[in-house]
């Protein structure tokens, strides 16, 4: 195979289709984490929240027979994990990084444990019903956009509109300005009579809801079962995307799509390039290595909120 042929086999419309497909979970988690970070809370446990969401999604779909129940269960259980995190990191003012790490470990253990307890065998859950796909008639004859967006999961289009929603919330609503104030200068916010703790709670819970949904997308849409550790670092990649995107709705969205593209590219390269030429393991490392390279090259000093990671102490007002 010569170079032009190889490139033709790699850069196809299918690559873009699969970019959209694998980006959705990262976009959901990234948008959620952006919301949380805007309020001044750094939740490193997103990966764990996604895992719990993925398991809850599969369980909900398995036991109720409806993937929609699974999706709801995933969001709610993500919120529950977010509540636990918020209680310890916001109310008890523990170190946010260590708490996030603990949440991650807890969720890895909890999902593995529950999977084994419920299905009596480890590794995978049985197959479950998945979310329907959306076929739009009018897109059929549109080149490029048609094949990319048709027959994607039904939540794809709403998820792709999330950055617009967050842009409006952040910059066009009063709550958005309170949210940003909670992340920049919570004491100033308290002075005008708003409670930074409550805003941080709401932001973290909503962010965790989205992360849970992002996890469920993996188990009840991208695939049709839960397997142990199936999130495989996507939560951490979403965290990087939030930094890369400067904690701004469109920046984070593009960063998530970029990482999704890298993942899709990596999967395509694995199938196109023979293992003997370049080993698979190299491509599998690619998303993580690239994410770090991007972080090293593009990190902005003033990208995020000023007060991120610091607990809010009422007494020090």
């Amino acid at each position: 195979m010569n170079w032009t042929e190889a490139l033709k086999a790699i850069f196809t419309l299918t690559l873009l289709t699969s970019t959209v497909r694998v980006s959705i979970s990262i976009v959901l988690a990234g948008m959620g984490e952006m919301l949380t970070e805007r309020s001044g809370v750094l939740n490193i446990g997103v990966e764990g929240t996604m895992l719990v969401g993925a398991l809850a999604g599969a369980l909900g779909s398995y036991f109720s027979g409806s993937p929609w129940i699974g999706l709801l269960a995933a969001g709610l259980s993500g919120m529950l994990i977010g509540l636990l995190f918020s209680f310890i990191a916001i109310s008890l003012r523990s170190n946010q990084s260590i708490t996030g790490l603990a949440i991650y470990l807890l969720c890895v253990g909890l999902t593995g444990y529950l999977l084994q307890i419920i299905f009596e065998h480890g590794g995978n859950s049985p197959m479950v019903d998945t979310l329907p796909t959306l076929h739009m008639k009018f897109l059929e004859n549109v080149p490029v956009l048609g094949p990319i967006f048709n027959d994607q999961s039904i939540i794809t289009i709403p998820v792709l509109l999330l950055p617009v929603l967050f842009y409006i919330i952040f910059y066009r609503t009063p709550w958005g300005s309170w949210l940003r104030a909670a992340g920049e200068n919570p004491k100033a916010l308290a002075v005008v009579g708003k409670n930074p703790v409550r805003i941080r709670y709401v932001a973290t819970l909503c962010g965790s809801f989205l992360a849970g949904i992002g996890g469920a997308y993996l188990s009840i849409s991208q695939t049709s079962l839960f397997s142990e550790n199936m999130v495989a670092g996507r939560g951490f990649i979403a965290l990087s995307a939030v930094i890369f995107g400067g904690v701004q709705p469109f920046g984070v969205f593009l960063a998530c799509i970029f990482f999704g593209f890298m993942d899709a590219l990596q999967k395509t390269l694995q199938t196109v390039i023979p293992d003997t030429l370049i080993p698979r393991e190299l491509f599998m490392s690619l998303p993580y290595v690239l994410t770090l390279l991007v972080l090293a090259g593009f990190i902005k000093k003033s990208g995020g909120p000023a007060d991120i990671g610091n607990p809010y102490l009422k007494e020090s007002r």
């Binding site: 636990l84 523990s94 708490t99 807890l106 909890l110 593995g112 444990y113 999977l115 084994q116 142990e228």
Partner: peptide
Amino acid sequence: IPRQLTTLINGIVVLCVAAKDM
């Protein structure tokens, strides 16, 4: 009892140690 309990214990212990200020 599944062996994944180890990771679960790790998480809970770190969480409790992180929350020990309370």
